[in-house]
Nucleic acid binder design. Structure first.
Lengths: 337, 337
DNA sequence: TTGTATGCGTTATCAT
DNA sequence: ATGATAACGCATACAA
């Protein structure tokens, strides 16, 4: 397939490439007549601009890359939509890339985008990622990049985070106030900062209300529904039945809840559940699941804004951290009547 | 931020750019010693390859673009994962783009990717898209592109489709066999081929079983849960109560089901439900929703394979259509006991 | 307003 | 095995 270039157009019109180029770039120094003519013949000839060449000379792509670990849950898709809203408005294109919770893929994605494909990066790390050297180097080299949601405390860069500690504490306190006393926490993957923060909120709520708390009440696993199911099955087998469960996400909560229900436990009479990062599914199950709602859309918007600021500021920007708040949506799964 | 180029490396090493270039491209005609030296100093200097320049001269990007209308449902994410699996294996990167069901955005996405960002495109059209001229032109120009799932009959290009007709018919027949006689069909957005096909399956199942069928039994709307809710509310208000509903997707089915339940109807005793494109959520609601499972992962794989074949074949490929089959998962929502 | 010439960072061709 | 140089398609400084 043969590409039409501005050279071809210039030749056909007996003009120069600069004139043609000017026509496409809304420059002032070109007569309306020639401009129109160029645009018309370009269309006729089936011309399509070569972005590679353009980006090469301009050293800008007007592309922004987003790297997320998954999008089976609606969390990341919603964040992306938020980011797209502000980026589109500023004339940026958005290239999304998915690491499938795999560090190697994530790194490949980042490298591929970073190598002059995009002007900046929005990234949420995979659950597998435990080496942040590469990212820190990238940041230090001056590449515009914002970390959101899943990141590490140690990384010195701009971040958009949710106040996990505060809302985990609120969620736990809600259970305590409802009279639950033997509350377990499914914390998901241990190493992530957000898991640590949610766990800290859980523990501190116990301290604040002078409730005894034992380490065995916090259970580590993956983040999927199946993990929740397994944990519930194990608890039942061991006959250690909590009277409430606070999970680090809705998937875990729903997985566990379904197994307990299957074994004849009544929710929330026998055992209550609270999830995190409210999912649509959570409000559809029986009984509807209480959960902490994160401002997904807003996270995306804030991250995008921070990124654009950083691109604008060049090297002289200073890392910033935005911490957002949410809401605790209380539903039947944790409401003692 | 200053970019390090192969020129800089060459200068530092007192060698030529060609030598440096060779070091990075696993060429045979370079001594192991110089190669190692180049790679080492490149790393020290913080060199990162400029893909724009490379792609410009090679006229290849080893990127594949995927354009989807949304990823709030798990359908498209799963398709993407399937596509990624085969694409990654062949050394391709995947750039995803989301149109948010908006034709203008979709077009922007395609144009941005098409302009030398990617070697080929996998696309599923937005529900708003009703003008296919641009796409047909693109295909005719020889650009490698595969349409999947949401497309138009009229487009002459390679496609990966689900056998919507057959499985809509099976789903309807299942309801008929269960003894339901007054079945309504929520068809979602009317204009899409898949909607037409599912509707045709619904109608033909009635014909086959010599059941009377009236046009009012097919209801058009959007594809969201809220649409299902509205339709159900309307039906209840009009006191036209079907004894079964076959919806074009799970969202519609669940939306309608929740409203009927809220109004005291028993599922499936008073009214049965069957969805389409099985979602995880569907199996979590009460009662679990019967649905047609599409081979999402396989759709992605097939589309990717077709695309790679097309890129390989160049201009002399012929359009191909792959039609895939699925399964009908029968659950409580449509099981008369 | 238009044309000429140069460079963006890389690979590829052709010498050496 | 290595080096010089011409592309790739475009934008732009400068000249006209």
């Amino acid at each position: 397939m043969k590409y039409i270039t501005i050279k071809d157009i210039a030749k056909k019109l007996n003009t120069s490439v600069s004139t043609v180029s000017r026509a496409f770039n809304d420059k002032s120094d070109i007569s309306a007549k020639t401009k129109e003519l160029v645009l018309k013949t370009a269309k006729e000839m089936g011309y399509r601009q070569n972005r590679m060449a353009k980006n090469l000379v301009q050293k800008r792509t007007y592309n922004i890359g987003i790297v997320v670990p998954e999008f089976v849950n609606s969390f990341f898709p919603e964040v992306i939509m938020g980011a797209q809203e502000v980026l589109f408005k500023k004339g940026y294109q958005v290239l999304i890339t998915q690491s499938n919770e795999c560090y190697t893929t994530e790194l490949k994605n980042v490298q591929s985008l970073e190598n002059s494909m995009v002007d900046g990066l929005l990234i949420s790390l995979s659950s597998e990622t435990d080496n942040i050297d590469y990212y820190q180097d990238l940041v230090n080299s001056g590449f515009p990049i914002i970390f959101f949601n899943r990141t590490y405390k140690e990384i010195k860069a701009s971040k958009v985070l949710f106040n996990d500690y505060k809302w985990a504490m609120f969620a736990t306190e809600h259970l305590i106030r409802q009279g639950y006393k033997n509350i377990y926490h499914l914390q998901g993957i241990k190493s992530l900062t957000l898991s640590k923060e949610r766990r800290r909120g859980f523990v501190d709520a116990h301290k604040k209300h002078k409730l005894t708390y034992d380490k065995s009440q916090v259970i580590t696993s993956g983040f999927h529904m199946e993990d929740g199911e397994k944990i519930a099955a194990q608890l039942i087998e061991n006959n250690t039945i909590p009277d409430a469960i606070f999970a680090a996400n809705d998937q875990l909560a729903m997985g566990a809840m379904s197994v307990f229900k299957k074994h004849g436990f009544k929710v929330p009479k026998d055992i209550a559940f609270v999830g995190f990062s409210e999912s649509k599914m959570g409000s559809m199950v029986e009984p509807p699941l209480s959960s902490v709602k994160q401002p997904t859309f807003e996270i995306g918007k804030q991250a995008a804004k921070l990124l654009l600021d950083q691109i604008e500021a060049g090297t002289k920007h200073t890392p910033q951290t935005v911490k957002l708040d949410g809401e605790l949506h209380i539903r039947e799964s944790s409401l003692k009547k």
